[in-house]
Nucleic acid binder design. Sequence first.
DNA 1: CCTGTAATTGACCGATTGTTCCAGAAAGGC
DNA 2: GCCTTTCTGGAACAATCGGTCAATTACAGG
Lengths: 192, 192
Amino acid sequence: MGRPKEFERDAVLDRAIEVFWDRGYDGTSMADLVEALGIGRQSLYDTFGDKRSLYLLALDRYRSERNTTPWHLLDEQPLRPGLRALFTAIVDWMADEPDGRSCMMVCAAAERAPHDREVERRFCANTEQMERRFTARLERARADGEIGGQHDVTALARYLTNALYGLNLTAKARRDRAYLHQIVDVTLSILG
Amino acid sequence: MGRPKEFERDAVLDRAIEVFWDRGYDGTSMADLVEALGIGRQSLYDTFGDKRSLYLLALDRYRSERNTTPWHLLDEQPLRPGLRALFTAIVDWMADEPDGRSCMMVCAAAERAPHDREVERRFCANTEQMERRFTARLERARADGEIGGQHDVTALARYLTNALYGLNLTAKARRDRAYLHQIVDVTLSILG
DNA sequence: CCTGTAATTGACCGATTGTTCCAGAAAGGC
DNA sequence: GCCTTTCTGGAACAATCGGTCAATTACAGG
């Protein structure tokens, strides 16, 4: 029934992610999007709604499909090497980003969270997810006797999440592998 | 000579800080500024140049005059209580900000640093200043025998700066005093 | 007082903003 | 074939964007 779409929804959404990620919400115009997405203006509105709704869809897709943080590194090995591998991979990725771009959720939170409850909700969910991943791994480590009991597992997970968020900002000031690794070293030294 | 200005430059700049801080660079229009600053459009352009130049001036004034971080707490007491007092004051401030607003330099860096070298420069300077403040205090602590030698003083300073940056983002997800204090506890526990 | 200089005011500029309208094109079901 | 449904492309919308212009106003120095 009816004429079929000439584009793949997800592929277009991926391009929207790239544009919003690069220029932010207010910094991106619908004209920018029409050009970058390669579809007509009306198709854009029919398929994704208005600008804000497209932005939220892009955020959702980024979080579920495009965020390539290699969390699997955590589970494949003992706690300490796993954490080091994870943080190293993240820091290397940050140092390689040409213009110091950070995690899209961080960009979104900084720009829109104070003014858009839906963006705030998504950033909260992102934070909780990271926290849960760390918590799960730390609980296993505690059961395996890999870490002592001087800190609450939940507190440690929040501490690690906070450090990752910090690196997103620090990397904007110093896109320098050694510099960032030095911070990671101190951060992880808390686990002995 | 000539007609005197009817406004105080610094007071107007303070109002500009507030607007840019709240709505960001792209989110603020010149019309917004004219209204909030209470001066005419032409006076605005004559006195502060164009929008970007006003933004940079606002950032400079924020950094030199309006950033009320109580660094003095660091110097008035031994290292550990000083750090705890500083971090506690910052976390309390964050928890009290009604819409989860963070440090203006963080907002500026997230939105503009990737696209504006002058904003990036100012964020780098901000980072270095924080780092230097921590370094100076830590060096004194080391000389006084307050801390051991398991970590480089510079590395520790960068670690603390990174943690503060992280709290700016974490506070956007969880504007919760106890939650943030828990992170501070773990962060500072590294000093024994 | 008058003159020179600078600040104010408000209208105004073309460009761009997000969004909608509409005529036409392309498919599926009959 | 036709009809219905959906998608497309471009023109068009009022509103707003950052920025400028010219006329007017107000002070300082003579």
